[in-house]
Design a protein around this nucleic acid. Structure first.
Lengths: 132, 132
DNA sequence: TCAATTGCGTAATGCTATAACGTGTGCGAT
DNA sequence: ATCGCACACGTTATAGCATTACGCAATTGA
């Protein structure tokens, strides 16, 4: 799924996330866009839904937040499962991919005949700076 | 962290989860315990907090639900990271552990000097039965 | 005895997400 | 051309998840 031209709302939401240098909740995004005419959560959620679909934004399940994909131009969906390390102190997020992990998880699902649709890997803790 | 004697509320919540054969949300648990005098979400959340701490219950971040640990008597916290496969059709959850995955993620965090506190691995999809 | 800890109960609130309705616009098929 | 469809959008209301703040009671241990 590649990203077509974004609509106005999608572009606004994306821009806010891009500038944020950290994950944002839908309601935080909403607040940042009130000046641009946003009035309801649904406007944000609808835009996010598409951005997630296009693979340019990721959702962090463990903190109910959203973050731009670390791979600006490539299609993130082709990298296999995305993993995140989330600093609980500064909020910074590192995105990475590990094919060996993917492979192990795929082996397991295959063994169980489980049809995986979406895999979440999120490590919460402290980044180097904050742990020091 | 091993589980001491559970308090009344903790035992009630645990029992409900144990009988459930699938993950339950905190509010579902609350509803099931109204007859036993539960009246507020906090009663459930407080019990869950302890049960999570004792390692006898897990939280599924991606579906905001809770499930009993698949290892009745051992201390789950000693198995390394827990992974879950969650069927989006029937709601059934399989818990598993993969040391190789743990190892790969630990390698990554060590390389980044990231101090991991809690790792979430959740695979959503369809179980063998539901996929057929 | 006093202070600290822990569990509990209640009320209120806050945060996250979706349902249900209707509007307008672009576009292809007839 | 116009009808039907898909899609984005706007608004209101509601559902679902989680925590804050307050106070009380029992337990423990200095």
């Amino acid at each position: 799924m590649n990203a077509p031209q974004l609509t106005k709302n999608q572009a606004l939401v994306f821009e806010v996330l891009e500038k944020a240098d950290g994950p944002l909740s839908a309601y935080t995004i909403l607040d940042k866009l009130r000046d641009h005419g946003f009035r309801a959560p649904l406007q944000v959620y609808r835009a996010l839904e598409k951005l997630l679909e296009y693979g340019v934004v990721h959702r962090l399940e463990s903190i109910n937040s959203f973050v731009v994909c670390a791979h600006p131009n490539e299609n993130c969906h082709s990298h296999g499962t995305v993993a995140f390390a989330i600093c609980e102190s500064c909020g910074h997020v590192m995105e990475f991919h590990d094919h060996e992990v993917d492979h192990r998880l795929m082996d397991w699902t295959r063994g169980k005949k489980f049809k995986a649709e979406k895999t979440t890997i999120e490590i919460r803790g402290l980044c180097e700076t904050c742990a020091a």
